[in-house]
Simulated assay, not measured.
Amino acid sequence: MDEELLQFVLSSEFRGLERELRRNYATDIRPLLSWLWRRGVPWTAAISADLQAYKEFRLDPPLNPQRIGGTKWNRDAAALTRLCKWAKASLLPVDVGRRGEPAASARSSRVSWLTPRTWASFMWCDG
């Protein structure tokens, strides 16, 4: 068990987020943690080269047949940044808040779509 990760999940910073955002962050952080673990690198010891290799793996078609798009990468990066800032890690992952860092394939619009879970909750309403 990763005590530091557990502390993050139990922290007021994480618990203060809306439920759906907490769920999204958990699912966004998990692939990086798994990827690092398979390489024998604790997330608290990851270096810039590790994160760059992970980004290339997530976005580059030849390396990953289940690649993600730029918008999804930016969401992953926001979750990873929150975790690393909370942990006061010296290394911060690609931060979507910094100029020039978002993935090139990311959409710039601020369109908000309903998640499947939110849509399902509306389906149960009577009117």
Score class of each variant (00 low, 15 high):
residue 105 S to R: 02
residue 101 E to T: 02
residue 86 W to M: 10
residue 101 E to C: 00
residue 3 E to F: 11
residue 4 E to P: 10
residue 86 W to Q: 09
residue 16 G to K: 11
residue 36 L to E: 06
residue 44 T to D: 09
residue 69 G to A: 00
residue 108 S to W: 06
residue 114 L to I: 10
residue 6 L to E: 13
residue 49 A to P: 05
residue 66 Q to F: 13
residue 10 L to K: 10
residue 27 T to S: 03
residue 104 A to Q: 04
residue 45 A to N: 14
residue 38 R to L: 13
residue 59 L to I: 03
residue 11 S to G: 08
residue 60 D to V: 03
residue 91 L to K: 02
residue 31 P to G: 03
residue 55 K to A: 10
residue 110 R to T: 07
residue 64 N to M: 05
residue 106 A to M: 09
residue 36 L to V: 09
residue 115 T to E: 14
residue 83 L to H: 04
residue 31 P to I: 08
residue 13 E to M: 08
residue 2 D to H: 12
residue 39 R to D: 08
residue 27 T to Y: 08
residue 8 F to G: 09
residue 15 R to Y: 10
residue 76 D to N: 01
residue 73 W to H: 01
residue 123 M to C: 09
residue 99 R to A: 08
residue 9 V to T: 06
residue 36 L to Q: 02
residue 1 M to V: 07
residue 7 Q to N: 10
residue 108 S to I: 13
residue 97 G to I: 07
residue 43 W to S: 04
residue 24 N to Y: 00
residue 56 E to G: 07
residue 5 L to A: 04
residue 68 I to K: 02
residue 73 W to C: 00
residue 91 L to E: 13
residue 63 L to V: 06
residue 7 Q to I: 11
residue 84 C to F: 11
residue 18 E to W: 11
residue 13 E to P: 04
residue 126 D to N: 06
residue 40 G to K: 01
residue 38 R to A: 14
residue 32 L to F: 09
residue 43 W to K: 03
residue 115 T to W: 04
residue 33 L to P: 04
residue 12 S to A: 15
residue 112 S to P: 08
residue 102 P to E: 01
residue 100 G to D: 03
residue 11 S to N: 13
residue 52 Q to P: 08
residue 12 S to N: 14
residue 32 L to P: 07
residue 17 L to E: 11
residue 110 R to F: 02
residue 122 F to P: 06
residue 57 F to M: 00
residue 75 R to C: 01
residue 72 K to H: 14
residue 65 P to C: 10
residue 17 L to I: 12
residue 107 R to G: 01
residue 71 T to M: 01
residue 23 R to C: 11
residue 90 S to C: 07
residue 72 K to W: 11
residue 11 S to C: 12
residue 58 R to K: 15
residue 33 L to H: 04
residue 88 K to N: 13
residue 9 V to K: 06
residue 95 D to I: 00
residue 93 P to A: 07
residue 97 G to N: 10
residue 65 P to Q: 10
residue 63 L to S: 09
residue 17 L to S: 15
residue 4 E to I: 11
residue 88 K to L: 10
residue 76 D to Y: 07
residue 115 T to S: 14
residue 127 G to P: 10
residue 82 R to C: 15
residue 21 L to G: 12
residue 14 F to N: 03
residue 90 S to H: 09
residue 82 R to M: 15
residue 61 P to F: 09
residue 98 R to C: 06
residue 63 L to I: 12
residue 125 C to L: 14
residue 87 A to R: 01
residue 100 G to N: 01
residue 71 T to R: 02
residue 46 A to E: 05
residue 50 D to I: 05
residue 62 P to A: 13
